[in-house]
């Protein structure tokens, strides 16, 4: 069940990604529609975050290529925003909430240019959109998990992109923040923006996303959410790894075989 789209916003062509020779994503080939909220869904260790990083050029591809807006990522970076998992940074870093949100402007500013007054105003407006304007001067180590996620979202908004990649934005946040985030994503998609979200909770997936990608080391399905979240496909995604695939992967590590000739 892999739906291809006519004019995709993201196209992955036969992507394989390996860590230490061991493939963690096998031959992913898919296209994503623009203007939708897209969920990447699969069990722990399925390679969801890796897929997102592959789209953002943050991991090396063993094979295949990525096209975004039908172009190379480097040509369209200013239209793309990436939100890493909030656990991936040290929140004890000496910075204020506003400092972090201002980083969202750095891509537009380029090297050596300091944020101007206009950038600070954009950053404050983005904080307002996630209900955090009262926290602008707060040291980031004093934030709760939900607040940290909101700050990361505000930073992404400050990038004023058209395509957003978000790694587990709903993980470890309170119910109020989860609701605020999904409302924000929905209003973004109404404005024609595309959001790709790594997600692990099946229950909310049907309600949150227009399009779903089911992943477990290989691509199982990609298509409109009501056609993809079927018992059979979910069973295939969560019903354990393909043992043969895993065995071959292990063999590649052990023998130090190149995963491509």
């Amino acid at each position: 069940m892999i739906h291809q789209v006519e004019t995709p916003i993201v196209e992955l062509h036969d992507i394989t990604v390996s860590y230490h020779k061991k493939p963690v994503l096998w031959d992913i080939d898919l296209t994503l529609p623009s203007g939708s909220i897209i969920g990447i869904i699969g069990p722990n260790g399925a390679g969801k975050s890796t897929l997102l990083k592959a789209m953002m050029g943050l991991v090396e591809l063993s094979s295949g290529y990525v096209r975004i807006f039908d172009q190379d990522l480097d040509q369209v970076r200013s239209r793309v925003s990436y939100v890493p998992q909030k656990e991936s940074v040290d929140w004890d870093f000496p910075a204020s909430v506003l400092d972090v949100v201002l980083m969202g402007r750095y891509g537009k500013l380029g090297l050596f240019t300091r944020p101007r007054k206009a950038d600070k105003e954009v950053a404050m407006e983005c904080l307002r959109q996630v209900d955090m304007e009262n926290y602008a001067g707060r040291q980031i180590s004093q934030l709760s998990g939900g607040q940290q996620q909101r700050v990361f979202l505000a930073r992404a908004l400050a990038q004023e992109a058209d395509l957003y990649f978000m790694d587990e934005p709903f993980a470890g946040v309170d119910a109020a923040t989860e609701k605020a985030i999904i409302n924000l994503l929905k209003s973004m998609s109404k404005q024609g923006k595309t959001v790709v979200v790594v997600h692990h909770d099946l229950q909310s997936a049907l309600e949150y996303f227009d399009w779903a990608v089911l992943l477990n080391l290989r691509l199982i399905a990609s298509g409109p959410v009501n056609q993809v979240l079927t018992p059979e496909l979910l069973q295939e995604t969560y019903g354990g790894k393909l043992t043969l695939l895993a065995a071959v992967g292990d063999l590649l590590t052990k023998k130090e075989f190149p995963s491509r000739e």
Binding site: M56, G57, R77, P84, S88, F112, R114, Q159
Partner: peptide
């Protein structure tokens, strides 16, 4: 000169990479 750049790679390296630094 590199204050802004060093700050962002120290805080969030992947983000810095994603904006093309």
């Amino acid at each position: 000169l590199f204050f802004k750049e060093f700050t962002v790679i120290a805080f969030d390296e992947n983000f810095a990479r994603s904006i093309g630094f």
